[in-house]
């Protein structure tokens, strides 16, 4: 009993360390980190998702940066103007640029569009 428990805890700690150390492909600029903090401080997550995670009142924004007809000016327009549901956010030009840099970063990290994945016979999926 104690041995099983100790082994599980040990495995868990090893696995945690392994997860923390996972290499990542993106290089990050300071404005991206700043943009991420603005994303958190304004709680955009309450209505939007990144990689499908977040609140569901608004759309997923992981790849909004590269979607056809969207991009930086489009994002800024939404944040400044708001919509029927989304409040307008009073941000400086500098803050807006950081927010856009963050959404560019999420876009470059991978795709959250479920249509881009391939389903394999064993139930796993391929993509990203």
């Amino acid at each position: 009993m104690k041995i099983v428990l100790a082994s599980l805890v040990f495995l868990f700690l090893m696995y945690s360390a392994f997860i923390y150390q996972q290499p990542v492909k993106e290089e990050t600029m300071p404005e991206v980190v700043r943009g991420k903090m603005i994303w958190q401080e304004k709680n955009c997550t309450a209505c939007h998702q990144l990689y499908g995670l977040g609140g569901f009142l608004g759309p997923d924004l992981t790849n909004v940066y590269s979607q056809e007809g969207k991009g930086a000016p489009y994002i800024k327009a939404f944040v400044q103007g708001g919509t029927a549901t989304m409040p307008a956010f009073n941000l400086s030009e500098d803050e807006l640029n950081c927010l856009v840099a963050f959404l560019k970063h999420t876009d470059e990290s991978g795709s959250a569009d479920p249509r881009k994945f391939k389903i394999r016979h064993d139930g796993t999926i391929a993509g990203n």
């Binding site: 997860i19 923390y20 990542v24 492909k25 991206v32 980190v33 990144l50 990689y51 990290s109 991978g110």
Partner: peptide, 14 residues
């Protein structure tokens, strides 16, 4: 962790 959205979200959901 803060630097990478992928690492951050992985640890967050872990």
């Amino acid at each position: 962790f803060q630097k990478s959205i992928v690492r951050d979200m992985t640890v967050q959901w872990k």
